[in-house]
């Protein structure tokens, strides 16, 4: 755990110059493709994700597989969850609220830090990944890469949820901007 100590320097900066509770830069754009029903591009630090939504459409091949009120989205990185949320919103598919994912870890065995970069993940300690509904505070998924002491869990979890709320703010702003832009161009006319 000695290497762990260097994750946050004495003046409180991390390896990439962020503070403990700072997210990586998020840039996103909706409606990047024309062919799918919905699409989104999201950059979170150096992670770049493109997501596309096709549907809803008739179940192809075997009606027995049809599920009427749920869908499964597989994601590898937390940023993928955020991109998938944006793409679903762009497709006009009803969802309860934003689903945001964020990671948090423990630096210097004491300080919780937010949004772990790949570099920090390699040299650092345990990483907690949380996907949540930020408005109601419900947790959709929680995953850990290693064990750490139970006493630390609450503060790391709180930090990750705070990150989810911050990400939701950023995504919400992007959605509003996109809807406004498209709406002004179409004259807010009915498209359905």
């Amino acid at each position: 755990m000695s290497r762990n100590k260097e994750l946050i320097s004495k003046i409180g900066l991390r390896l990439d110059g962020r503070r403990a509770n700072e997210l990586r830069r998020i840039r996103c754009k909706l409606g990047v493709f024309t062919q799918p029903d919905g699409s989104a591009y999201l950059e979170q630090g150096l992670t770049k994700v493109l997501a596309a939504v096709y549907g809803p459409h008739q179940v192809r091949g075997g009606r027995s597989k049809a599920q009427h009120d749920n869908a499964i989205v597989n994601c590898i990185y937390p940023a993928c969850v955020n991109a998938a949320t944006l793409a679903l919103i762009d497709a006009g598919i009803p969802i309860k609220e934003y689903v945001c994912a964020c990671t948090a870890s423990l630096a210097n065995n004491d300080i919780p830090m937010l949004d772990i970069s790949h570099q920090e993940e390699i040299i650092g300690g345990p990483t907690l990944t949380v996907a949540a509904l930020p408005m109601s505070g419900k947790i959709v998924l929680m995953e850990m890469s290693q064990r750490f002491h139970l006493d630390h869990l609450q503060k790391v979890l709180d930090k990750a949820l705070q990150g989810c709320r911050d990400i939701k703010q950023i995504l919400d702003e992007a959605v509003r901007l996109h809807v406004r832009d498209v709406g002004c161009s179409t004259g807010w006319a009915s498209t359905s």
Binding site: G31, D37, G38, G55, P56, H57, I89, D90, A91, G92, I93, P94, I95, K96, E97, S136, V175, R176, V179, V182, G183, T186, W188, S190, T191, S192
Partner: peptide, 30 residues
């Protein structure tokens, strides 16, 4: 949709109201 007594939106769009019926129309849909 309704949750905890409040009416919430489930899509991104503009509100439309006919008498007491409130709906939110997304800009893009099938």
């Amino acid at each position: 949709y309704e949750e905890n007594g409040a009416l919430k939106s489930s899509v991104a769009g503009v509100r439309e109201q006919v008498n007491n019926l409130i709906s939110v129309r997304p800009l893009k849909s099938r």
